[in-house]
Each structure stands twice: as structure tokens, then as C-alpha cells.
Design a protein around this nucleic acid. Structure first.
Lengths: 250, 250
DNA sequence: TCGAATTTGTGCGTATGTATC
DNA sequence: GGATACATACGCACAAATTCG
């Protein structure tokens, strides 16, 4: 039987004091120097202990300020819209309204441009084919809650008023309705969900710490002839949103 | 402009050599001692560089053996069964069969026992109410691919032949059909998906490294009167399975 | 306003443990 | 069982952010 390392012992001691409500969520812990003195160990050991608890989401470190008990923020329940009648934007706005929040989004379209290999594969086009890329930032009461980057083959909508997803008379109506305007009927929605970690840019946009836990959703809409009409990369931070899929019997 | 740390420079150099296909997936890299000599740095710096790439999933360290280029294993496409007509087991077996694999599962039921607070809340029962807990390990060609732990209130099925999910004449038929036998109609399915990391036990059961990326799904079935009839914690490792939600228009 | 003290974050080196061959 | 190679834990130095007089 090997004895457990000092840092693990300290981690458990800190965890216990939090469980005992000696420190409440949001409270600042004593500094590493103080804790080291209290537990008669080095600062490095306290540091490792805190790192463990930070990784578990129990603690939260703020540079220059202190180490805090993680305040479990309210997470938004994000019901994914798999039905074809409702799009990302409308679904988001409706759900936020039901929570008494204002659901809005910022977007920026670019194109025509060529898609990266992986995106081209998802759309069933070649890397030479042109696309329109639109970046979204979804906001609840003006605070960012998740990100999305959408790709549409230029050939789907070229020559119509719906080339730019967030421009023209059909702005903000979602892919499905805009595609209907272009004569394309969307009959299938697929979402592939993968766990991951936020990169520096995503963390900055969402106000998270680098490496924060996220779910990456690859969403693709298909028309009745089986062709992909749009695909999107959606980044949902675990700290802000909980992803829900549901189906109810009529 | 601050210069980048040595370990980051080495990480990019290694990444480049992998991109250049100097090392193919599955290949073993030179030892840290060799790389340190080649790049004229210390072994610790090579180690940090490799740690970065391991965290990104580019490399894979095997104690006592070496550091390898991560071979991207084939990931099983796991379409989540949201429809009420089909259960977890039947869905899994069907999907594996379509891939030419044999989909089976091990299970172990225990009860009556009381549920932890969080599970009791999901089931809408008190912590004193009894439940039956069933642990599943889903296997593709006898290799574990994901885990599930199911909780059913004892009151739902007591007195019927379906008390134990994997025992009796209705074994392996899934919650929905078994509940129908007990006179309970399931009308709503909800899955909450959260990113996380495997603990030691999960990693062992699934043959993964500790801390491997997983998606934790909380699935709950509800009956027509709004009561929860079953809830499950499902652990899907990113390395082995890709989670898919889809809806197709009739 | 500014700057020093405090506190956490990052990077690296070393010692030791453990798995593999 | 020895040699080799990666994993873990810890200590140290310095950078970055914050706080406060």
C-alpha cells in the first residue's frame, strides 16, 4: 500500500472544508502562503492541490487576486432544435424569452471563399468550390453564451436574395426558411456532438478560462435529394450552457 | 513581441514533422533523450512539448514503451435513439449490425436501494424511496465502447415481472417496452449532454487513459403524466464513439 | 496616478516511480 | 532482473494580473 502524495492529502482537506461550508461558493480562500503555513507544507504542494480542484471545477483561480470557491453559475438549458420547422436563431430567441432573457446574436458573413478540407467533405463539395461563411455569437441579455460558424455552398443560393444568411429580407430566419426561398427543401438534420476544450480565441469570445470544457457540435442540414445544404460548427461552453435533446410524442 | 517558450517551439517542430508524414499514425517517435540531443535542449523541454501534443490528441505516451503518433482509431457512429419506439439496447444492436459488428452488453442489477440526491431529483422521488440500479457495459465485438448506469424507481415496476431490467421474460427489451408491460406509457425522452473527463474506474472499464475526453449523457424517460420512469447516466468516450442526433422528415 | 506588495500563472529542472522490453 | 522510456510529484524562478496605499 503506497501512501498518497502530500498534494492529494491537501486537496482532500480543502475539499472537505468546502463541503463543510466553511467556505461558500464565491468566497476567496486564504493565499497559498497562508495555507502552506497552516498545513506545514510548501507553497508548491498547496498549488498542486489547488490545481487538482481547479481542474475538477471546485475552485477557480484569478491571477493577482486569489483562489475562489467556484460559484456554480446558472447554466442555460439549450434545447437543440432538430425539427426542420425551426432554426437555430428562432429556437434560441424563443428559449431565451421563456427564461425571461433577451436572446440576440451578432453575425459576420464572408464570401465567396473556399472551405477547409473537413468542411468541404461534410458539404460533399470540392475544396475548389466556393462557400459563404458566417460566424455567429449568440448572446443572452448581451452576454455571449455560445458560438457558431456556418458554411453554405455558394451554389445553393447564388443568384437569389438569400446568398448572405444575415443580409437581405430574410435575415435572421434561419437556414431552413431561407433555403425554402431558394427552392431547396430541408428534410434532414444531423448533429454530431464531441467533447473538447476551448482554444484561446473561443475562451476570449466567451469570457472563459483557456482550456474550459466545451461541446463541439457539427450540424448539417440535408435536402430531400441527400445533398448537404449547410453545415455549422457550434461551440457550447459547459460552464454557460447545458445541451438538451428531447423528443415528445405528439 | 515576446518570444515563444522553447517547449512550444519544439511542439511545433514535432507537429510539423507529423504533418509532413515523416512519422505516420502508430509510429514511435525517437526517445526524449534522442530528441533533446537533436534539438539541443533538455529532456524536460521535449517532455513539455510532447505533453502539449498529447493533450491535443496528436501524440500518445505509453509508459516504458515510447511516445507514438496517435493512430486515429475508427470511431463508432452512435446515433442516439430519441424515438420512444426504440430503446438503448435494440438501437445499439441494430447499429452495430449495420456496421458488421456484434453489439452486446453486460449488465448487473442491484436493488432495492436508495438513490443519490441528484438522481432522486431527476426521478422526482425522495432520497428515501427505493430504486433498482443497473450498470451496463456496451460491447462492440466484445470490446467495451460505452457505459451506462440506469435508475428506475422501485414503485414503477414492483409487483410485476419487469422489476429487474435484465432479468425475466422481458430482459434486453429496453425501458420503454418493459414499462409498457407494467402499464406505463413512455411519451417523452430527454437527453442532457455534458463534456467531461473519464475517472479512473471509467478509464479502466473502457481501456482508456485517465482523463480521456468523454460525453456524459443524462437520459430520462417520462410517462404521459409527466413522471420520470427511468433515468440513466451514460458515459461515451470520444476516442471510441461519436454521438449523433438526427431527425429525418417522414 | 503610480508603484510596490501580494497573489496566481507559466515554464523548467530534478528526483523518483512504474511500465515495458 | 537490468536497461530503457515514460509518468508523477515537487521545488524554484520569474512573469502577469490585481490590489491598495
Amino acid at each position: 500500500m503506497r501512501e498518497q502524495p502530500p498534494s492529494l492529502r491537501i486537496a482532500e482537506a480543502l475539499q472537505q472544508r468546502i463541503s463543510d461550508q466553511e467556505w461558500a461558493p464565491g468566497d476567496r480562500l486564504p493565499s497559498r502562503a497562508q495555507l502552506a503555513q497552516e498545513y506545514e507544507c510548501t507553497e508548491a504542494i498547496v498549488r498542486r492541490a489547488q490545481e487538482r480542484l481547479i481542474a475538477e471545477g471546485v475552485l477557480e483561480g484569478r491571477a493577482g487576486s486569489g483562489t475562489y470557491v467556484a460559484a456554480q453559475r446558472e447554466r442555460l438549458r439549450l434545447v437543440r432544435p432538430l425539427a426542420r420547422e425551426i432554426g437555430e436563431q428562432e429556437s434560441f430567441r424563443t428559449q431565451m424569452a421563456a427564461l425571461g432573457k433577451r436572446g440576440t446574436w451578432d453575425s459576420r458573413s464572408e464570401g465567396p471563399l473556399t472551405a477547409p478540407t473537413t468542411v468541404a467533405a461534410r458539404l460533399g463539395i470540392t475544396e475548389a468550390d466556393y462557400c459563404v461563411r458566417t460566424s455567429y455569437e449568440y448572446l443572452a441579455d448581451s452576454k455571449p453564451v455560445y458560438l457558431a460558424t456556418s458554411w453554405e455552398p455558394y451554389s445553393m443560393t447564388s443568384g437569389s436574395l438569400v446568398v448572405l444568411p444575415e443580409g437581405g429580407p430574410h435575415a435572421g430566419q434561419g437556414v431552413v426558411r431561407r433555403m425554402a426561398e431558394a427552392g431547396v427543401k430541408v428534410t434532414r438534420a444531423v448533429e454530431r456532438a464531441n467533447p473538447g476544450n476551448a482554444n484561446a480565441e473561443e475562451a476570449h469570445l466567451l469570457g472563459l478560462l483557456r482550456g474550459a470544457s466545451v461541446t463541439r457540435i457539427q450540424r448539417t442540414y440535408y435536402s430531400s435529394d441527400g445533398r448537404a445544404v449547410e453545415t455549422a460548427d457550434i461551440v457550447v461552453p459547459a460552464a454557460l450552457c447545458e445541451i438538451v435533446y428531447e423528443s415528445t410524442e405528439g
